[in-house]
Write a protein that binds this DNA or RNA. Structure first.
Lengths: 224, 224
DNA sequence: TTCATTTGGCGCAAATCTCCCACAAATTGT
DNA sequence: ACAATTTGTGGGAGATTTGCGCCAAATGAA
């Protein structure tokens, strides 16, 4: 079942969207402000509909917050849709940007289009590969059954690599995803360091990694 | 390298988009009508920008055609954007729908957003020829099933040749594409060396190459 | 505060790739 | 067949990339 989080302070609007999405077979959760929405992020959603003008802050900031934690697709909903703002939204990594007023049917189609693309990710909550297992919901990893303490950055790095298992991620891509939107302010070497620490914690033989593979001149990849 | 197919009969518009996308680092191919575009589908693209009103048919039909063949993301570009049409587009499985006039910057951001999502899953983009297979997503090549370690330059060279399979690339063209400068700063022989290395790694008999064929006096080509 | 943990940075070593040189082999035109 | 041009080969210097140890600044909890 696809779970959708709606962050919208206009209760009429938010409630309407919630009912409509439920009628389409989604599970919809409504949050009227950011502090409430922040708590919601504990659980996982397939997609987040995010209003921009909220009583206790900006949707943009919340989107940044989301991206630090996970890769859940985000669609912005907004009334004031200057082009500048739309571009800003996309730069924050959103997946679509819908201006009010919009028809519910179109909203539905756009949601469906985004889910179509993002829904095909690695399964849901757990990941297993050789003697490594990761519980995405709990943000915990275990090697041969015994749990491993990962820091937040290490975990995010691992999750990013696993979710793109089989694909080579360039250093630039990783920097952009894990650190800010343009990871140019961060020393490239920092990535090496975190990779190293991650390897030391999860690899059986950190000198000959089986999980996190270096692709010289490009970046890293998970798995053979 | 992301390859984008633009299907647009207005040459001014199409050419402008092509140039803009190229300036953003994409490889853009322009097709002015459907019959031409249909042939283009032989090769693979990361994304297709599709105008709806075309001289020899409707973009909707072409989108249906595309979906029969593959899952390449499609973004519709159109002037007559009744909501009904947009919904129709999404039902055909498109990924976004942009109304003219639009700013190029916004186009860029929406393209980036779609590619961001679609890039994650596609372990799909593969190339097979005799006993050679190349996985573009993983940036990996394999001969008779066993993977081959290619350096970044070697891989880019191979990808370039494969993406232009059947046509001869002059040394000059290759130098420009791989060493993006005018290719004059680089010793011509360097290309020979990389070609050799690549052959040693992927050819069954490097002395009698089957994949990377020398066209004496011109350059190289992939395949017979 | 103090202590522990996380995070990011620096410098050097090791690994690896890129590129060039000189010469050999192949191809083409006459 | 011969000379001129183009392409292939082996080796090696130099540059780039990555790994690693150590340290300092932030962060957070007791």
């Amino acid at each position: 079942m696809e779970r959708i989080l709606i962050v919208e302070d206009d209760i009429i609007m938010g409630g309407g969207i919630k009912l409509f999405l439920e009628s389409k077979g989604y599970e919809a959760v409504l949050s009227e402000n950011l502090s409430q929405a922040e708590k919601m992020l504990e659980s996982t959603f397939s997609l987040i509909l995010l209003d921009i003008n909220l009583p206790d802050g900006s949707g943009y900031d919340f989107c940044r917050e989301i991206r630090k934690q996970c890769l859940t697709p985000v669609i912005f909903l907004t009334a004031n849709d200057t082009e500048e703002n739309m571009i800003k939204g996309f730069q924050l990594g959103c997946d679509d940007y819908i201006s009010k007023p919009f028809s519910v049917e179109l909203l539905y189609q756009r949601i469906a289009a985004v889910l179509r693309r993002s829904g095909q990710k690695q399964s849901g909550e757990r990941f297993e590969y050789r003697n490594l297992s990761v519980d995405f919901a709990r943000m915990q990893a275990a090697v041969s059954g015994s749990p491993v303490r990962l820091s937040a950055t290490e975990y995010r790095l691992l999750e990013l690599l696993i979710r793109n298992k089989g694909q080579v991620l360039t250093r630039q891509q990783i920097l952009e995803k894990i650190w800010d939107c343009d990871g140019n302010f961060i020393d490239e070497n920092t990535l090496n360091v975190h990779i190293r620490r991650l390897r030391q914690k999860i690899e059986n033989d950190p000198k000959n990694p089986q999980f996190i593979i270096t692709v010289f001149g490009i970046g890293y990849t998970f798995g053979e």
